[in-house]
Design a protein around this nucleic acid. Structure first.
Lengths: 339, 339
DNA sequence: ATCGGTAACGATACCGGTATCGTTCTCTAT
DNA sequence: ATAGAGAACGATACCGGTATCGTTACCGAT
């Protein structure tokens, strides 16, 4: 083993300064009971030795950590990024710092152990509270304050911020129907995710209301990725009676529709109308009409709610519903004169 | 204070199972010295009580944490995201987990205290080692294994992964000069960042070598943001003798050039050629010619190097140089016939 | 002179785990 | 019968901080 520089501890500081650890601790925490002269000497020693306090040790005794945890499924998803922007904004306005824990998508040596691990990580260990984004992971956490953004379960037992997925999907469908489309394909999201199911229900209900029979061949699988959007839309567009519009459960898979359309020589919106969901930053570049669900704002509000919980303040609402808004760009066109 | 559910500790498990904490600890760590029957009983109690071990407590005594820390300036930057993709990949292949610490850009109550705080957070507290991206923060860390991606200092005292910024810039300039451009504007990055300066030097040296005098009015300030790119290029394009091409220090600011060009009614590439740096995912959508510096790969390699360090293995190289590659898209055109 | 109050600081228990060593019990070899 | 080995488990110190209480010295008031 190579000689490792030992970590400087509070003991080392105390010895060097000729005082007890108690006094050093008092200085570190800005307590009043210290003579000015002593304080200066200790601060001098601290900076000379380059001492920094050990968070693990401190957090064990004093419960305050001024640290919030964030669990996201995958940090590379544009979806996650948007939410995190809002979280960062709220964090910057607060006294808290943020620790992000990402599970990645790859399961390693025994998923159970892995989940156990990260739960223990956040549970009361080192953070005051946890924000959980698009996951069902919160079910494991029992004691720490916790809030979910877009939870994967329908009626979570903890506070949450949710988009109005159903209404958003309804808006999209009304828009497309109004443009004269009646053969509309749908690319599903991951079925185990509540918001994906809400969007699918919106798709179906809108068709019912318009008196259009649901054609099951127009509803295809998907998992929110660009690749699945590509595969599913390729399938849809090769149908004998192919849809004139495709509604993808999120923007990522809508981008896959663009790929498939290009490959088949179909122009958007001339030959095919496309709508997504989420309004990620890439959507703007390709001109994708989509539903803005104010992801950043959701992250911002969730963080503020969590901070209230950590401070033992009461929440105004347990479930914060975030309204959606249709963002019209250039990926759709009318089939027949409107009305 | 509302009644808080107390955290379940190893003591609770031991009491419930009728054994000592030592035995529970043995089971948790998979030690051999436990009878099969006892082990099953303890595991039963653990899952019944929903016990999860406290990372802070564990990491204090046993130094192994199986956790790597990551410090990024701002999680919202496309730059950071690319690097993190590679880091995530390496993490997924390892036994380690990842904890991301973001500083945000807003300075809060006393920058010193803030930096102190996060340094102590990572230093030996809860992670085995730290990856630092695009920052000078590493200077504060003395004892933990640490690696930097694109460090902000020229000769860091710790291992690092760096792009070949100078050569990348040289390639861009040769490309533009070869297309017949000789009035080329440059939008700077943040001057305190080493890689930004390297790119600027590449710009200047290429002009010198081509025998073109450097026109200081063509070199404008910037800070890597889209907004600064917009402002600076607006300035450049309103010059009496405006440049025929603009080389932006990164893709983000190159996107600002697009905004300015559109506002002034200039078409890209017909009226103006643009080149960026980084090859972020947005660059593909707008067809921006840029320099790929394989950010994801840099993150991947850095993580692998750090893991070696944590395992006390020797590194092959202290500085890993990552070559760059010019990615030609549709944002440039030739002014005169080449050669 | 005695007392109470306060400023400044030290001693010690404790947070929740792990490492180390010690103890008990059973089994086998002599 | 007794010693020695090994299996299974308990007791205790310790990690590096903070919380709590105790101690000392000095002050002015009675």
């Amino acid at each position: 083993m190579p000689t490792k520089k030992r970590t400087v501890t509070i003991q080392d500081v105390a010895k060097k300064a000729g005082v007890s650890v108690s006094t050093v601790s008092r200085v570190l925490n800005g307590k009043a009971d210290v003579a000015g002269e002593t304080q200066e000497k200790i601060l001098g020693v601290i900076s000379k030795l380059g001492y920094t306090s050990n968070l693990a040790a401190r957090s064990m005794r004093s419960r305050r950590k001024d640290l919030l945890g964030l669990v996201v499924p995958d940090i590379g998803f544009p979806y996650s990024i948007e939410v995190m922007k809002g979280i960062n904004r709220a964090i910057a306005e607060s006294k808290f710092d943020l620790l992000v824990y990402t599970m990645g998508d790859v399961k390693k040596s025994g998923a159970v152990i892995h989940e156990q691990h990260y739960v223990s990580l956040l549970n009361n260990s080192i953070t005051d509270g946890v924000i959980i984004v698009a996951s069902a992971a919160a079910e494991f956490i029992t004691d720490a304050p916790i809030i979910a953004v877009d939870p994967h379960v329908v009626n979570p037992s903890y506070p949450s911020v949710q988009g109005t997925n159903y209404h958003g999907a309804l808006d999209v469908m009304k828009y497309l129907l109004n443009l004269g489309h009646n053969r509309i394909g749908f690319i599903c999201g991951r079925p185990e995710i509540a918001s994906a199911e809400r969007r699918l229900k919106g798709y179906k209900d809108a068709l019912k209301e318009a008196g259009i029979a649901i054609d099951k061949s127009l509803i295809t699988d998907g998992d929110f990725t660009t690749k699945s959007g590509y595969i599913s839309s390729l399938h849809l567009l090769k149908l004998d009676n192919r849809p004139t519009a495709i509604f993808a459960a999120n923007d990522q898979s809508a981008l896959g529709v663009y790929q498939a359309a290009e490959e088949l020589g179909l122009r958007i919106p001339d030959d095919l109308s496309v709508v997504g969901f989420d309004n990620i930053s890439e959507a703007k570049f390709v001109g994708l009409t989509t539903v803005d669900q104010f992801l950043s704002e959701m992250g911002y509000i969730a963080t503020q709610m969590l901070i209230k919980m950590v401070n033992n303040e009461k929440l105004d609402v347990q479930v914060h519903k975030m309204p959606t808004r249709l963002v019209e760009r250039t990926s759709c066109r009318a089939l027949e004169p409107v009305h």
